[in-house]
Amino acid sequence: MKKVTNIISLMAIVGGITIAFTSCSKRDANSPGVEYMPDMYRSPSLETNSFSVVANADGTFDTIQTNRLPVAGTIPRGYMPYPYTNDTAGYSNAGKYLHNPLPKNDANVAEGEVLYGKYCVHCHGASGQGDGIVGSKLPGPPPSYTSAALMALPEGKMFHTITYGKNMMGSHASQLNEDERWKVIMYIHKLQYPNGEPVKVADTTATPAVKVKAKGKKK
């Protein structure tokens, strides 16, 4: 009898201690946890997306974003200026003179399809009918690629629209580089003409005002 009580009391003590060790209070989600030598994470050098304090000439201090804007007029290496302005004239000029510099092959169209799936599909829909999930939540859906107006849209205008945005659509230049924009356009053409594009007669009368050669990043 005594043995049984002993075993029970022993089990109670052991169980109690086990629970005490394993039941930790829930940690604060806003705290990263205990740190030792925090400089391993928080280096003395300034991190890109942080804030730093700068002294002004008059002795006051300002807290500003660490990554500063580049000096006005700075251009990245390999950058080609886009010569068409963000207005009606630029839009129509792009339609007239801007053409796809990339070869139209299966690899490029396939890449365009992948890019379309990442950057366009949620508004324009998988088939390009303007029936994407986000598109249906906008005040109005984006126009269908197969509508009369868009079937007649020259590729230069498409490029211009992706670069600057148009109407409800914003600029996607920060997400897609020039080559990628052309690849997306090639895929849109495939959506418009699933059985292959009709051969267009080249407009020989138009002389390009500015010759644009899209130069992708060297890989």
Partner: peptide, 15 residues
């Protein structure tokens, strides 16, 4: 266990 968790941010979920 506690020491092994020092400097490990697993579960960090800041607002």
């Amino acid at each position: 266990d506690g020491m092994m968790g020092i400097g490990v941010y697993q579960g960090y979920n800041p607002s």
